[in-house]
Design a protein around this nucleic acid. Structure first.
Lengths: 156, 156
DNA sequence: TGACTCATGTCAGTAGTCTGACATAGCGTG
DNA sequence: CACGCTATGTCAGACTACTGACATGAGTCA
């Protein structure tokens, strides 16, 4: 920052104070997490959304495209593009026709399971590093705070 | 979710437990915040990065392109594209030549100040809603936790 | 002085995500 | 049954942000 110490905020009481704003801090932390994940996933040739998709399928086999999209926080259109690529690359397989409705259940292939194993370990190490220096109580408090913020934002 | 209750995690002890992962929760909260901000900024014809840039300039006039990029958590290339558009639209103005080095200081125009006033109020209301139901102590704890996570992720 | 390193601005191309739109399947209600 | 509502899958186009690359200015050091 190349400016002096005069406070440009003076006389502007309607601004969001960046350095004390929880919203800004939330974005900052999320950005740092994303960057750290990209760094460890890049050598594996995997993006964050790619990883998220496989991780979701590892934990909950049979999720549909729309469910995966919600779990990875992207639109179902974006997830659809990704799923087509993953199917082409043999990491996942989708039922040919819907057992009910239009939702097509998706599963990991053996290849997909190998891919997610490496990626999951890498991401787990990032999360471990992120939590270093935080006590159990700190983590529990952060957990409740993040849940509270998410819930409050959703009920609009 | 359309699956039964069998636990696919059984026998896979290396997975990131989504529903208890602070990393996942952080992404979820950040995603909710971003969606809420986009919702209130859309009527103003403004994206989140667009808003972030103007807010930074309102609080710290004279920031350079690279400094704005870091503050808005995008690359300097992305911010450069945005700044060119904002300059064309008359919301900001940049010095013609660098007073020192190559960094070009940027300021809001009168038009830019009017734009950010509305946007800032809208975003402030979102943040207020996000914090509803959290005590001062909760907010302070969240503040410390987010700072700790960001710091831990950065020192790689 | 010259070489090296770092930060900055900028151009070009690529990749990921989004909005808009359409068709279809299930569900509830008159 | 017919109608509306909701959720889903998918295609197409536009936009945003990214990576890669190059040139320039400032500081460091032998």
């Amino acid at each position: 920052m190349s400016q002096g110490d005069a406070d440009p905020q003076a006389g502007r009481d309607d601004g969001v104070r960046l350095d004390t704003s929880l919203g800004y801090l939330l974005k900052e932390a999320s950005s740092a997490l994303r960057a750290a994940m990209e760094e460890v996933l890049r050598p594996l040739g995997m993006t964050v959304t790619h990883y998220s998709c496989l991780e979701l399928l590892a934990q909950r086999p049979g999720l549909s495209n729309s469910e995966l999209a919600r779990g990875a926080f992207v639109t179902r259109q974006s997830m659809n593009v990704l799923l087509q690529a993953l199917e082409r690359d043999g990491e996942v397989e989708r039922a040919a026709e819907a057992p009910v409705g239009k939702a097509l259940p998706t599963q990991l292939t053996a290849h997909g399971r190998r891919r997610i194993a490496d990626a999951s370990a890498a991401v787990r190490s990032v999360e471990t590093r992120m939590l270093a220096g935080m006590s159990e109580a700190d983590q529990a408090a952060a957990f409740r705070a993040l849940q509270s913020m998410t819930r409050a934002l959703r009920e609009s």
